[in-house]
Amino acid sequence: MIRVADLPATHPGRRLLTKRTPFFVAPREPRCSYSVYVPTSWTPETEMPVLVAVHGTGRSVGELREGFISFAERHELIVVTPLFPVGITDPDDVDSYKKIEAGGIRFDLVLLDILEQVRIRWNARIGKVLLCGHSGGGQFAHRFLYLHPDRVAAVAVGAPGNVTPLDDSRDWPEGIADTPRRFGTTVDREAVARVPVILVIGSEDDGRADLAAMGHPGRSRPEELDLLEKSLAQHGTTVRQVVVQGVGHDAAGTRGPVVEFFTGQLDAGAV
């Protein structure tokens, strides 16, 4: 794998591997991939922090990456946007990545391998990253936090249709009782509590009809978010919820509070 630092400054590969990059195959699982935005201020000597933004069910990865470019330029950080495609476990599967594991694939480990490749290629600082996701990405983000609290500096969870509370009486993904068997690790609540979390949702994002159509009648996205907030707070996490007025189920519409939250984390030296 070519390190960008090894290419001469005039080499066309520098243009290919900075700013908006192509999609790269994920090293652990070639059915997955990722794209990166590398700020114009990047130099081989610069060890930039990383923001990971995880897509929702629609997999609008390009739009997601574009939405964080001004933030990346302003704060000199690298944006990593993984792509977990539809149809990995069966032709109609859209949900597998949200629950971290399916069909023998550990999507959390796929992401960790992606980050290691980003570290090598761009000399990135990946010990702790900023992590965000909207809708299905929000499901992935808070579950990744449970399993790898040592790898995230702060987490933003947007409008998930389903959440996992820190509940020892129920198995994954309704709870965390079986994580030692399923993932080989026990959720460390104290470590999770050290990671600040913001929960965001639009005031018009009820989602009850959508969730009922998918087999979850009677549930809504605000109720799921309230459940997650209560569970995290009960176990010591510094968590706050922001409702963006006039916005529906829209990642771009709820991005403002996420950017503000991450800006505060960067200013405080969290990564």
Rank of each mutant, 00 (worst) to 15 (best):
A124N: 03
D92F: 06
R121W: 08
G127M: 11
G87Q: 04
S96I: 05
E73G: 06
R106A: 04
L130F: 00
Y97N: 05
V80W: 03
L130A: 11
R119M: 07
R106V: 07
L130V: 09
L109H: 13
I100R: 00
D108M: 03
V118P: 02
T81E: 05
R125A: 10
Y97S: 07
A124E: 05
R125C: 12
N123W: 13
R119C: 04
P85Q: 12
T81N: 02
G127S: 13
S70K: 15
V118K: 01
P82L: 02
Y97L: 06
R119K: 15
L112N: 06
V79N: 00
V80Q: 01
L77A: 10
F107M: 04
D113A: 07
D95P: 07
D108T: 07
T89M: 11
T89S: 14
R125H: 14
D92H: 12
V118D: 03
G127V: 11
W122N: 04
K99D: 15
R74L: 15
V80A: 03
E116L: 08
A72G: 13
I120Y: 11
L112V: 08
L115T: 00
L111V: 00
D93E: 06
P82N: 02
F84E: 03
P85I: 05
L112R: 11
R74Q: 15
D95L: 13
D113C: 01
G87I: 05
E76F: 05
I78F: 09
I88D: 05
F107P: 01
R121Y: 06
G127Q: 15
R106L: 03
P82K: 00
I105C: 09
D95K: 10
K99R: 14
L115P: 03
I120G: 09
P82A: 02
V86Y: 11
I100A: 01
L109S: 12
E76C: 09
L115S: 06
E101C: 14
G103S: 09
W122V: 07
I120M: 14
G87K: 05
I114C: 01
V129Q: 06
V129M: 09
L130K: 02
G104T: 12
P85R: 10
D92P: 08
G103D: 08
V129C: 08
S96Q: 13
V80H: 01
L77M: 12
L83C: 11
A124L: 10
I78Q: 02
L130W: 00
R125N: 14
L131D: 00
V110Q: 06
A72L: 08
I126R: 05
L83E: 11
R119P: 02
F84H: 05
L83M: 10
F84M: 07
F84G: 04
W122L: 10
F107R: 01
A72Q: 07
I114L: 03
N123E: 14
E116H: 11
V110R: 04
R74Y: 12
D90V: 09
E116V: 09
L112M: 12
I78V: 13
K98S: 09
R121N: 08
N123Q: 15
F71S: 11
G127P: 09
L83W: 10
L131T: 03
D92V: 09
P91A: 01
V86I: 11
S96T: 07
V94C: 13
R74T: 15
A102I: 01
D113T: 02
R106E: 04
I114A: 00
D108V: 10
V94K: 15
F84R: 03
V110C: 10
G127R: 13
A72C: 12
